[in-house]
Nucleic acid binder design. Structure first.
Lengths: 142, 142
DNA sequence: TATTGTTATACTCTATAACTATA
DNA sequence: TATAGTTATAGAGTATAACAATA
């Protein structure tokens, strides 16, 4: 008995993700954004208050890496950082109006991109797909 | 009617892929490899002859990026490049014994990692999962 | 002129280590 | 001492543009 050929599932996963990420990056860049900027903006919007440590964790990067992005975003006029009077070690991050505008532009792009990805796929297919993603993440975490 | 909340499928996809890639990178690095090295080794092994242009395309990177990796791999004693006598523009890439050994070590790692990823998933689940991956790739390509 | 590949250069994302400031 | 964040530095992976060699 020869065992059936199985393509490495991780390779298929990362190849597809890479293709999708590139297309998404292009779409974000077309309106002046990028993937990390988008993720950071989402995190800032979804939890108004929270220190950078939490922010970094939410985005899945190190604190210093977050600082790197925040520096660029602050230089770009997307956000401000000020010390929290209650605990002056904490830097409170807030979006400027320009940052808000970019967030909304990027959200439009993200919504359109999501619709594009879902084309031709049923709710059931996607639900099953997400279940497998969840399991893969668990299998990797151990 | 409020529309049901749908998490962006691309975000779930890339987050899971990133987690899986990091775990895989760590596993490859533990035996002296990396993801691009592994992909390049696979491509070299699977199609003994073929120019670097094809190699780059198979790996999904630009020609200059491939040269970058080949330089490092040649310095590391994993492969040799010599001109094809039939067409001296073409550089024939061949693995050294050390390159072969690394390929086999990485293959072991990849097989073990694949088994780890598949844990708890049925053939049917994975087949459906791959179908969705294929569709996502199509949706992105357009 | 077209093709194959390299070199030079730079960009993005990421990380670690050492540092400042605050508590 | 511990915590929050920054600065300095570096490394991996990628890309584009200009180039050399060959056909």
């Amino acid at each position: 008995m020869t065992s059936p050929f199985r393509a490495p599932i991780g390779l298929r996963l990362t190849n597809t993700a890479r293709a999708a990420s590139r297309a998404f990056d292009d779409a974000l860049a077309a309106v002046g954004g990028s993937a990390p900027i988008w993720q950071i903006l989402i995190s800032i919007k979804s939890r108004q208050l929270g220190n950078q440590r939490e922010l970094a964790e939410a985005v899945g990067i190190q604190g210093a890496t977050l600082t790197h992005h925040l520096n660029a975003m602050e230089s770009g006029g997307l956000l401000t950082r000020r010390r929290d009077p209650a605990n002056r070690r904490v830097h409170v991050v807030e979006l400027t109006e320009e940052g808000e505008l970019l967030f909304h532009r990027l959200r439009e792009v993200a919504i359109a991109f999501d619709a594009r990805l879902r084309a031709g796929l049923s709710e059931e297919q996607i639900a099953a797909f997400e279940q497998v993603l969840t399991r893969l993440a668990e299998n990797v975490r151990d």
